[in-house]
Computed example of a mutant assay.
Amino acid sequence: MTLQDSPPAPAPSLDDGILKVLANAGSGTLSAPEIAHALAPDGDWHGLLMPIRRAAVALALAGRLVIYRKGKPADPNDFRGVYRLGLPRHD
């Protein structure tokens, strides 16, 4: 089996991509469009907005990220409008 015959590496999951972008942002928060741009800089990032929201809810419920609304943590099951995402703070 040569390098050309080997299967391509699996694409990272959206969850992993979101968490990686947030980790690179440090202790700050990012909006869904900012994350979408980071994940698909040359592609159609608009198509990622709803999948990012769904993944963010699941990640927030698992305690892996925090959804912020007006600068305060929001209930992942009940938030509307503009939101930002950040990694949990360990203060």
Rank of each mutant, 00 (worst) to 15 (best):
D78L: 02
W45F: 05
L48I: 07
A60C: 15
V66M: 06
M50Y: 04
I52G: 12
R64V: 08
A60I: 11
H46S: 07
Y68N: 08
L65C: 06
A55K: 03
A62I: 14
R69A: 02
G47R: 08
M50Q: 11
I52M: 09
A58W: 06
A62S: 11
P51L: 10
L61F: 12
A60L: 11
G47P: 00
P76M: 09
V57M: 01
A55R: 04
I67Q: 02
K72L: 05
H46D: 14
V57K: 00
R69C: 04
L59Y: 01
Y68C: 14
K72F: 09
R54A: 13
R69E: 04
I67K: 03
I67N: 07
D75T: 04
A58M: 13
A56V: 12
W45H: 10
L65K: 00
A56M: 13
V57H: 00
P76T: 10
N77R: 02
L49N: 10
V57W: 00
L59V: 10
G47V: 06
I67R: 02
K72D: 01
D78P: 02
A60S: 15
A62R: 08
V57C: 00
N77E: 07
A55C: 11
R53C: 03
G63E: 02
P51E: 09
A58G: 14
A62Q: 04
A55L: 06
W45C: 11
G47C: 04
L65T: 09
K70M: 04
R53H: 02
